[in-house]
């Protein structure tokens, strides 16, 4: 009764998909494996006959700028993302979020692909990608395809990826003048090591007005969403105390938080969401104002 029988290293996407189809079942793809292997070990995930490791697939390990897009390979260790000057320049929210996933050693193995594919409603990396409006690039027997990040989730812990579909990487727009992003979260020292609340903001300012904004909160609802109605409050408005107050009220009216035992009550989450919103929007606003 071992965690796996056969652990295969794949060196290309086509090889990985082929290996998947030929493998002794049950089979799963694995990249960092920092969550999956533990879950199998602790009995909360069935043992696998075959694991196909995606860490050696060149394009999944790339982190680069392609034209107007930033591409982050799904198998890039999150510590590299955090420390990447490219990401710090174009997507501080992603740099900040990935810097908080797991611990320092875990971050050298853990990947953004795993963080998203795990489909947990409060995954830090995922919440930041939602604010960045990222697109996921996947690969399966029928070739490459693209999906908006929010289309990847069906329910808590359940991703919309097909079994043999590999998350290759994520892309989002480079930072243009007047744009900025930020991420923050609140933990509780005791009990389950999951954030009580995490939050990411991306915005574009034009003169003294927020021209566009994207806001995400986790954990809120069974699948990640954007706080669209809160965004509406900001869009086209100045960042004033009054706007912030209205946005906070809109959180109470339109964002769903629930009580999770031993972690936080819904009331506390609303309270934190309001406080974090003000803080994070202001940081993103200031970053957006930094001249190049």
């Amino acid at each position: 009764m071992t965690i796996w029988k056969d652990y295969q290293l794949a060196y290309s996407l086509s090889e990985a998909v082929e290996a998947y189809n030929q493998a002794e079942k049950p089979v799963r793809f694995v990249s960092g494996g920092t969550d999956l292997l533990l879950e199998i070990q602790q009995g909360s995930h069935p043992t696998m006959k075959t694991l196909i490791d995606l860490n050696h697939i060149g394009e999944m390990r790339e982190l680069k700028m392609v034209g107007e897009q930033i591409f982050i390979g799904a198998a890039v260790p999150v510590s590299q993302i955090t420390n990447s000057p490219l990401i710090k320049k174009h997507a501080m929210a992603v740099a900040e979020a990935t810097g908080l996933i797991g611990g320092p050693q875990v971050r050298n193995s853990a990947t953004l692909g795993g963080n998203v594919a795990h489909a947990l409603p409060a995954a830090d990396g995922m919440i930041s990608l939602v604010a960045m409006d990222a697109t996921a690039i996947t690969y399966s027997h029928s070739g490459y395809s693209k999906k908006k990040i929010l289309e990847l989730f069906l329910g808590p812990g359940e991703s919309a990826l097909a079994n043999d579909e590999i998350l290759v990487g994520f892309e989002f727009s480079i930072k243009k003048s007047g744009e900025g992003s930020a991420f923050n979260r609140v933990m509780r020292p005791q009990g389950v090591a999951l954030p009580i609340l995490n939050h990411a903001v991306w915005l574009r300012r034009k003169d003294h007005v927020i021209e566009d904004i994207r806001i995400s909160f986790g954990p809120s609802g069974p699948v990640p969403t954007r706080a669209m109605l809160v965004e509406e409050i900001f869009r086209g408005n100045k960042l004033t105390a009054e706007t912030i107050l209205r946005a906070k009220e809109t959180i109470l009216e339109t964002v769903k938080f629930r009580t999770s035992r031993m972690r936080a009550t819904a009331e506390y989450r609303y309270h934190l969401a309001q406080a974090l919103l003000e803080k994070v929007v202001k940081i993103a606003w200031n970053r957006a104002g930094e001249t190049e």
């Binding site: 652990y7 290293l9 494996g33 292997l37 070990q41 510590s79 320092p104 050693q105 875990v106 193995s109």
Partner: peptide, 18 residues
Amino acid sequence: TVVIDGEPVLSCSYPAVK
């Protein structure tokens, strides 16, 4: 923790084959 190619990594959850 051991160091693999310069990075500290947790060997208890790092498949040997990898």
